[in-house]
Design a protein around this nucleic acid. Structure first.
Lengths: 109, 109
DNA sequence: TAGACTAGTTTGCATTACAGACTAGTATGT
DNA sequence: ACATACTAGTCTGTAATGCAAACTAGTCTA
């Protein structure tokens, strides 16, 4: 009989946490998008205090993961980038926070 | 009058979170050390399911941050490495979890 | 038409996390 | 005696990451 894989505690599952969401800067971005439904680049830039380059690369990463939608358009000749959560992203964020809350309840300290 | 720096929400502080603790593998390691007071390399290896190389480098990182103490000794001709939290490490872990709990309470979802 | 501003993207770099190869010695089997 | 397996780690190589500064492209203003 092959030894059954030991049942992992909630705590041990932390190593499998979604790294895309776990990164603090992205968690912050996702938190904003989760509540506002749609935001532009500058709004996020101000709220997060990230640099432009950094914000841009995090958004690209989130897009590649299928978590945010990046829509570029012009408003009176000025380019505007609109960001919004995808259904996937909404789910991922929710899963992540659910998991983390559980973990922190189990955690000592 | 110089504009006062906007008061950051609890949420925004997440970007300043202690990255040494935030890394899932290390959070797991610290959680074990927080409760057992002292553990050896193999114990952590089994509990965490990390590879040896990975565990080793995480421990070195924690040591460099001043969070864990690495004591090497021989027990009946067999080398044994004992790990324990330093006072600093205990404090850092506690601060981290306190901060994260607050953040997750504020978080939507 | 020069300078400043808006709105980002691209590039370069230093740091990470991770696993696999390697070291060094002990215990066991034949 | 010699090989194999185990204990206990460390060292090395690599791909990915996060970050900021430099750059692009166009608009507005004095």
């Amino acid at each position: 009989m092959v030894p059954k894989k030991k049942e992992a505690h909630e705590l041990q599952k932390i190593v499998d946490i979604d790294r895309v969401v776990h990164e603090p800067a992205r968690l912050l971005i996702l938190s904003y998008l989760y509540v506002v439904e749609s935001a532009d680049f500058l709004f996020l830039l101000r709220q997060t205090n990230l640099t432009k380059g950094n914000l841009s690369s995090h958004l690209m990463k989130l897009e590649k993961a299928g978590y945010v939608n990046i829509e570029k358009k012009f408003v009176e000749k000025i380019p505007r980038t609109l960001l919004s959560l995808t259904k996937e992203g909404r789910k991922a964020f929710h899963e992540y926070t659910k998991r983390m809350k559980k973990i922190f309840m189990e955690l000592p300290g």
